[in-house]
Structure formats: structure tokens, C-alpha cells
Computed example of a mutant assay.
Amino acid sequence: MSSTPLILSPQTKGVLAGIGACTIWGLSPIFYKLVDHVPAIEVLAHRTVWSLVFFGGVLALQGRLGQVRQAMDTRAKFVTLALASLMIATNWFLFIWAVGAGRTTESSLGYYILPLVAVVIGRVVFGEALKPSQWVAVALATGAVVLLTVGLQAPPWIALTLAISFGFYALIKKRLDVGPVVSVTAEVLLMLPIALIVLLQSEHTGGSAFHAGPLTMGVLLVSGPVTALPLILFSYAARRVRMTSLGLVQYLNPTLQFACAVFVFSEPFTGWHKIAFGLIWIALVIYAASMFAQDRASRRAAAAAAASGTGMI
């Protein structure tokens, strides 16, 4: 008796790819915790070098290396990519530092509030209208940040910097008509000179991770694929999944980061954290509901337009 092979739809494949990407991102604190004895700036330098090697290899196999040069062939493109490189370098460095410093809880908060920061950037930069429910979500997130600032007597600057840097990174990328793999290859290529200087300086002072043992070097080498693989999976998902579904899948990343912080690393989770995270989660439920409603309205309008067009033939 022959078995029928399982055939997945493009939508299902896209959702699975998105889940895979966000799972890797969400569990990455465990990965970077393995090298918390290495200075964060040196880990970032290794991540830059080995990401470039991996991305360059992928593009070479595809015969697309020339597209990296084309992505920077005008001054405007070069400046845009340089700004994107600065934003993603800031984001990567702070995330690596936060994990090593035992502040993964704050990094997870940053990625929770990222969608709401993106909404605010869209309003300020593009003049995008916000629905009342979205204003409520933004207000709740703002209240959560204020409560943490008052309760902990210090602003959650890690979370805010991570969210804002990645929000502006996404904003800059919207202005680039370049595929994700090509653009990130160009960005890490621009980071390469500084990365090499950091590695040479570490080697000169005798504190280089090159001498820290095979486990440390192995983790740093694998940081290239760990950076590249989720990006490729997410790019695959973005072409096959509705943005509403993809947006919900992205919440898996900070949820897993939060689980790593509290249950794996046993980081402090105070009453103020519980209140602030509770407000953030409520805000995200409201935001997700508004996105679903907007998606349904768009599909109804498209179906009505299609039906109207059919009736006129």
C-alpha cells in the first residue's frame, strides 16, 4: 500500500519558514551566552566577518556577487546602505552586550515594543493614519515604559535603543530596492574595516578570541550561519505569507527571548516587570486585532472589486 506524499502549500511553507526564522532569533541568547566571556565588540566583529563569508558564499553560488557592487554604485545608495549598516551594527552590538550582561529580559522587551515603535515611525515619517485602537496600543506601551522607568529608577534604555535602532533600520531598508541577502551582504561589507581593526587590536593586546579555545572559536565561526539562516528563511516567508500572519509569527522571537531570560538564565523579574510586560502584551493583542480587522477589510474590498469587475464583463 503506497502512502500519499505530504504536499505543503506555499502559504504553509512560508509560515513554517517564518516560525523557523523567529525560533532561531528567539533562542539566539543561548547561543551568544556561550561567548559572554568575549568582549561584545569582538563578538560583533566575528559576527560581521563570518556573516560576510557566508553571505558572500551564497551569492557566489547563485552568481549574484555583482549585485552587491550594483547596490552601492551611486552615492545615494552608498549613503543609504551606510546608514542601514550603522543601525544594524548598533542593534547587533547592544543585543550581544545585553545577553552577556544578564539583561536579556530588556532585550526581549525591545523586540516586543518594536511593532509599536514602527507604527509611530510610520505616523511621524510617512504621515500614516492610526486607528483609535492603535493609538490605545501605543499609549499602553508608552505607559509600560514610564512605569518601568519609575519602578526601576532608570529608563529601559536597552529595550528602547533596540526597538528604535531596528525601527529606523526597517525604515531605511524601505528606501532600498535591493533583495535582503544582497543588502545585508553590502551592510556587513561596510562594517568589515572596523571589524578587522577590532580583531587586529584584540590580537595585538593578547586577548583575542582566536586563542580562547575550540569551543569559543567554533561558536564565533557559526555566528555567520546563525545570522544568515533566519534572514534567508524570513525572506522566503515574506514572499509567501500575508503581512498580518507574518507579523504575528514575529512575536515568537521576543517570547522565546523572554523565556530564555526568565527560565534559562534566571534573570530578575520584578513586580514592575510583570506590570510593564502585562501592559505590553495587552497592547500587542489590541494591535494584532486591529491588524486582523484591517486585513479582513482589505480582502473584502478586493473581493467586492473583483466581483464588480466580473459583473461588468
Rank of each mutant, 00 (worst) to 15 (best):
residue 10 P to I: 07
residue 20 G to V: 09
residue 23 T to L: 09
residue 32 Y to G: 01
residue 37 H to R: 11
residue 38 V to S: 06
residue 42 E to P: 11
residue 45 A to P: 06
residue 46 H to V: 05
residue 48 T to M: 10
residue 51 S to P: 03
residue 56 G to H: 03
residue 59 L to A: 02
residue 62 Q to E: 11
residue 67 Q to F: 06
residue 71 A to H: 00
residue 73 D to N: 15
residue 76 A to H: 12
residue 85 S to N: 08
residue 85 S to P: 08
residue 87 M to H: 09
residue 91 N to C: 03
residue 97 W to M: 07
residue 100 G to P: 03
residue 104 T to I: 13
residue 106 E to A: 12
residue 106 E to T: 10
residue 107 S to W: 02
residue 108 S to M: 10
residue 111 Y to W: 04
residue 116 L to Q: 09
residue 118 A to T: 15
residue 128 E to F: 05
residue 132 P to C: 05
residue 134 Q to L: 12
residue 139 A to V: 08
residue 140 L to W: 06
residue 142 T to D: 12
residue 144 A to C: 09
residue 145 V to Y: 03
residue 147 L to W: 15
residue 148 L to P: 03
residue 151 G to T: 04
residue 153 Q to H: 15
residue 156 P to M: 00
residue 159 A to C: 07
residue 159 A to V: 01
residue 162 L to Y: 00
residue 166 F to E: 04
residue 166 F to A: 10
residue 168 F to W: 08
residue 168 F to Q: 01
residue 170 A to D: 15
residue 185 T to C: 06
residue 186 A to W: 00
residue 188 V to N: 02
residue 195 A to R: 05
residue 195 A to S: 10
residue 196 L to E: 08
residue 198 V to T: 11
residue 202 S to W: 03
residue 205 T to L: 12
residue 206 G to N: 12
residue 208 S to K: 06
residue 208 S to D: 05
residue 212 A to V: 12
residue 212 A to Q: 14
residue 213 G to K: 05
residue 216 T to R: 09
residue 221 L to S: 13
residue 224 G to H: 02
residue 227 T to R: 01
residue 233 L to W: 02
residue 234 F to L: 06
residue 236 Y to F: 10
residue 239 R to Y: 12
residue 239 R to K: 15
residue 251 Y to H: 14
residue 255 T to E: 06
residue 260 C to M: 14
residue 266 S to G: 13
residue 266 S to F: 15
residue 267 E to T: 09
residue 267 E to F: 11
residue 270 T to W: 03
residue 271 G to C: 10
residue 273 H to M: 11
residue 275 I to L: 14
residue 278 G to M: 08
residue 279 L to D: 10
residue 290 S to M: 13
residue 291 M to C: 15
residue 292 F to E: 15
residue 302 A to G: 05
residue 308 S to H: 14
residue 312 M to F: 14
